[in-house]
Design a protein around this nucleic acid. Structure first.
Lengths: 295, 295
DNA sequence: CCACCTCTGTGCATATATGCACACAAGCTT
DNA sequence: AAGCTTGTGTGCATATATGCACAGAGGTGG
């Protein structure tokens, strides 16, 4: 049913129709004129129609060939558009840009994201919050902001953004109810908000809870770290937060900051194939500038 | 500058984008999946862009691939239209139809042409009057009506239409002026209308004039036989006409019809490549029916 | 958690298409 | 007219792309 098994034949026939001779088409396509001849023969055989009138001085289109010429020239135009569109999508600042991070970082990313949106309104920024690391090499995301040990995967380009410091916080409503612990030992009697086992295993605070706080004292375990901060604000318990996140909630009081602190590295990760594109570069610039101003 | 050197790569990439896997695309295209892989690799290299995210379970389009998919699907549609349009142009009764004959036959062809126009108004009939025989194999014409010996060229399909009989005619104004010849000898004193030497050499009457009538008696030589008939009607001289042509001019009187008559075969010629098409068949039917009714 | 299955990816032999050389045909020029 | 130029068409050697077999990767289901 499919008459055009080889689209290249179409291009060859189109070139002949446009230039009028096999030789000219062959030169233009940088192939031998006999190849042009054979491709046209095979196409005509496949279509069951003569496309050209053979003339010793050149090829002249038949009515069928005229139709083919019209269609092929449209196709050629589309292809020109497509090729410019494809190269432009790499160099122009427009289209979708996918960023991924863990939900706990959303509070920190919202500000640079806003900055980026204002700088490049043509780009539709999509932030994907996901516990499981999306695969940049599968195109699931273009840029990732990750915490913990330095990612080390082939074809990933990793840049160090900052070192974030976290500490314990409690809301004033919690302190009013339970008091504020003054020593590490006193913590054992308090309630804590932590993460669900298996999720966010690499958050240092979660690991510390598992190690030093009895299971019974952990009032709430949430899978998303952003939910943890809200729970702490609402007074469900004491919890570990990045200082920069805690700053956003004036109600929160520091707890034993001189005694307890956790450091975690933040990495900016891109895939080598998308790293050089304008969009990715622009976002990386904004993110690096933002995190540099934090410290 | 031309990114798409091989349009077939586009078709292959399109199939992969549509079906999602190399294997499925390979099966659909009836080629090996490794070939599909290589063509996509080469296309991506040529474009300088990733079109697919390689996944062990299949190929997923990137943004560039999405654009390619959109363009290619449009192309695919156009191609479907084109292929149906091409086959339809053979089986449908529409479009141009080129007929060629010598000008002297126009009077005879006008009637069947009218019939054909009424039967198939979608077809634009173009009658090319030309002394030199147009080449059907070059697509200069689709149907030819020819007189004289049976055409014998390769790939030409020749059908016998009729045997036409011609005789001498004179207008009443000529007869009034010069009288009507009663014997063959009496003709020598009369004026004649004939053809220009070199043109229409195969018209039997013209040959007869050259052989039997003194050069000085030939009042007018015309290159177009249709002009000859008008000259005879206007009384410039005696001339040979097909009986069917002469019938159209009531003023004309037959001259020595029992003594002189010329027979010529009329042939319907088409090229083997266009002969089976609906348009050509339709015209051939009309012409054959018309000429059958003449005798 | 492991075995299975599908799909991708690679070296190698072969089949297919390309290029080349030459012959031929037809305008164009002188 | 006759040579010259340009372009088409064909047999043959080679280069190129295809198919094949097998390895590997990665997800799926028991």
């Amino acid at each position: 049913m499919d008459k055009f098994t080889d689209w290249q034949d179409l291009k060859v026939a189109y070139t002949v129709a446009k230039l009028g001779t096999l030789s000219a088409a062959a030169e233009h396509l940088e192939i031998h004129h006999s190849t042009v001849l054979r491709r046209i023969n095979s196409l005509e055989e496949a279509l069951g129609t003569r496309l050209f009138h053979r003339h010793a001085r050149g090829y002249q289109v038949t009515q069928a060939g005229e139709k083919l010429l019209a269609t092929a020239s449209q196709i050629d135009e589309r292809l020109m558009e497509l090729s410019t569109s494809i190269v432009a999508s790499d160099s122009q600042l427009r289209g979708k840009l996918l960023v991924t991070t863990v939900s706990g970082f959303m509070d920190m990313l919202s500000e640079p994201c806003l900055t980026f949106q204002q700088l490049h309104p043509q780009v539709q920024l999509e932030v994907i919050l996901d516990q499981k690391r999306l695969r940049l090499d599968h195109g699931q995301a273009h840029v990732a902001v990750r915490a913990g040990p330095k990612p080390d995967e082939p074809d990933y380009i990793v840049q160090h953004l900052n070192t974030l410091e976290a500490g314990l916080y409690a809301s004033s409503s919690y302190i009013k109810r339970m008091g504020i612990p003054k020593t590490l030992e006193a913590l054992q009697a308090h309630n804590f908000v932590s993460g669900v086992a298996g999720f966010n295993a690499r958050v240092p605070y979660f690991a510390w809870v598992d190690e030093h706080i009895p299971e019974t004292q952990v009032t709430l375990r949430v899978s998303e770290t952003s939910d943890a901060s809200r729970a702490i604000v609402n007074g469900l318990g004491i919890g570990g937060l990045q200082h920069d996140v805690a700053k956003r909630y004036p109600d929160l009081q520091p707890v034993l900051h001189d005694e307890l602190k956790w450091l975690s590295q933040v990495w900016l990760v891109t895939h080598v194939l998308v790293h050089r594109t304008a969009k990715v570069q622009a976002l990386c610039d904004v993110l690096k500038r933002h995190f540099a101003n934090l410290s």
